[in-house]
Design a protein around this nucleic acid. Structure first.
Lengths: 342, 342
DNA sequence: CTGTTAGCGCGTTCAC
DNA sequence: GTGAACGCGCTAACAG
């Protein structure tokens, strides 16, 4: 049953003794086909092993059934969970996903987005970056719904729609919590501020909290570092050596915080008495370490879901929802910062 | 500069006073265009904000420049790291990624693959599942290179190419290591065997090692569980209550193992003296816990790279490499099982 | 309910 | 170096 060259719709039509359109209708589940002919067509498709050509279909209908998703990296759980949420929703309604990563540090984001636009997706989801200039203009004139997600302030002036939370306010809330717990020498560890807007926002939140409480920022204990548990360990050691009487470290990522925590356990430092450790993201590990990590819970999965739903609603011509959705965050106080237990 | 309706190639040609082909040539970097006209065309493209239509181009050239990637889920780091490796390689050579998840437990994998085939990708990467029957036939007759990855034995009869390691041998090696360390009552925790072939293979490896050493398998301490740290904790508790004198637990996933480890620390059980804990995958956390986790290192990133490279080589018409590549695994002995320290 | 006629936007022959 | 013609495989109007 294997044809020498791939079967086309005409071949199916011929075999079923119907017109080409009829085959098209069966495939697109048009109600205007009698059950009898429908069966004939289906049989012919089966016999020929026919697989429709959606690229031709897309050209003709100017709808591709594809959604472009742009994220910094897919290997980082912080992003992959959001992508998974999006993926689940799109899969359930028959859209397919064009996945692109800008890289960290960001590579040629503009080129990626333009390439995607050339594939005529029915919608676009951009997580964690905010295109400007030429790319932004192209996006705007692409005439498709676009949802940006990630940081709220960064997307103050969105191309189209936004689903986000405030990294600034989240970091500020955690820092204020640390202050409330009596900490005064609070260090901060984040990702490279220059090319990571979310990290930059978190760092600003940290600074704002200190400043508002009349505390100066000690630049020697504000660190940038790479990803991974061991980087958190290293950061802890560096900070302790520079400022032995540091009483808290706010890691803008739970993985670092966990890495530091493990090292504290090894060194016999008691957390939070000797030093408080705070994280960010509410990574799964934060809830299981000993002591358990205080963190800022970010609704990563919900962000993906909301973004996907807003996009679908717009694609199906539904009412435009609010252009900007703030999904918020939650300060989760666990053991690692709780210096005032009952 | 924003046209009412999207600019087409003809519009660019008109504006640049050249023929349509010339624009096409410029876009495809054909050498047969004089620098002067080339500039004219580029200028026209810029002025019109022209974005080429790759779906039309794909139809005409019957090359989409897309690679379909199928994985169980993208939220699980075990898979997302492999996808990231693939993504990085394809991005560097200008291919785009069509991402699909079959779900866990697997949903309608066949439908997903057929939908993908309809989009005419230039190649396909299937991780962690082995299509059969109709789907397999369609794949075979799609006439594109296909790399399956995941378990070696599962892919003994591949559709096309394979990059994998042996989950069976990996699990067997770890179990043998445990036996060598003097453990005799070894429990096993894995993912649902019925719908997860990799988990099934690991379980078989565990059983094989015990049997070969003349030990019976105690079915009451062979558990299936869901993903996550806390599931590992629960499994530990269940096993300890059923068989208090268990002397080792082999978790077929580091996340479970870590969850159990944390609980041991809380309960004051010393690892590995009271109970040895072994993991699988070499997740980042395995190297940083206290004690650090023994595990089976799987080259996830390399699998993604190799798979992508093999696909590209075939797409570019290069020699067919070995159809089956065994990337192997590595037994990593750390503290959590090492009962014979120096 | 079914069929006919036109394109969708671009790549690819060929001539010039 | 450039241009005109045709076709990729399918969907969208219309008729009947």
């Amino acid at each position: 049953m294997k044809p020498k060259s791939r079967a086309r719709m005409v071949d199916v039509a011929e075999r079923a003794n119907v017109a080409l359109v009829t085959v098209s209708r069966v495939l697109n589940e048009s109600p205007a086909v009698s059950p009898a002919t429908r069966e004939k067509v289906l049989a012919a498709i089966e016999e020929l092993g026919y697989v429709p050509n959606l690229v031709a279909g897309s050209l003709a209908s100017s709808q591709t059934g594809m959604i472009a998703i742009v994220v910094p990296t897919i290997g980082n759980p912080v992003f992959s969970e959001t992508v998974e949420a999006m993926s689940n929703i799109f899969r359930s309604v028959g859209f397919e996903i064009l996945l692109g990563t800008t890289g960290e540090p960001p590579g040629d984001e503009s080129r990626l987005i333009e390439n995607f636009l050339a594939r005529r997706p029915d919608g676009m989801l951009i997580h964690g970056s905010n295109p400007t200039g030429r790319t932004r203009r192209l996006l705007a004139s692409a005439n498709i719904p676009i949802v940006q997600s990630g940081d709220l302030e960064e997307h103050a002036d969105p191309v189209d729609m936004v689903v986000a939370y405030s990294n600034f306010r989240g970091a500020k809330a955690m820092t204020e919590h640390l202050l409330e717990m009596g900490c005064r020498k609070i260090a901060f560890v984040g990702r490279q501020f220059t090319w990571n807007d979310r990290s930059f926002a978190r760092q600003r939140g940290y600074r704002a909290a200190l400043t508002e409480h009349g505390l100066a920022v000690d630049e020697s204990i504000v660190l940038e570092c790479d990803l991974g548990f061991t980087e958190g360990t290293k950061a802890l050691l560096k900070i302790k050596s520079r400022t032995p009487d540091v009483d808290a470290i706010f890691f803008a990522g739970d993985v670092w915080a966990a890495g530091a925590l493990f090292e504290c356990v090894r060194q016999g430092l008691s957390v939070p008495e000797d030093i408080a450790i705070a994280g960010f993201d509410d990574h799964a590990i934060a809830g299981v370490t000993a002591p358990r990590l205080s963190t800022i819970r970010v609704p990563r999965y919900e962000i993906g879901e909301r973004a996907a739903q807003m996009l679908l609603q717009r694609i199906s011509g539904g009412q435009t929802e609010d252009a900007v959705v703030d999904v918020g965050f939650e300060l989760v106080v666990r053991d690692s910062t709780n210096r005032k237990k009952r």
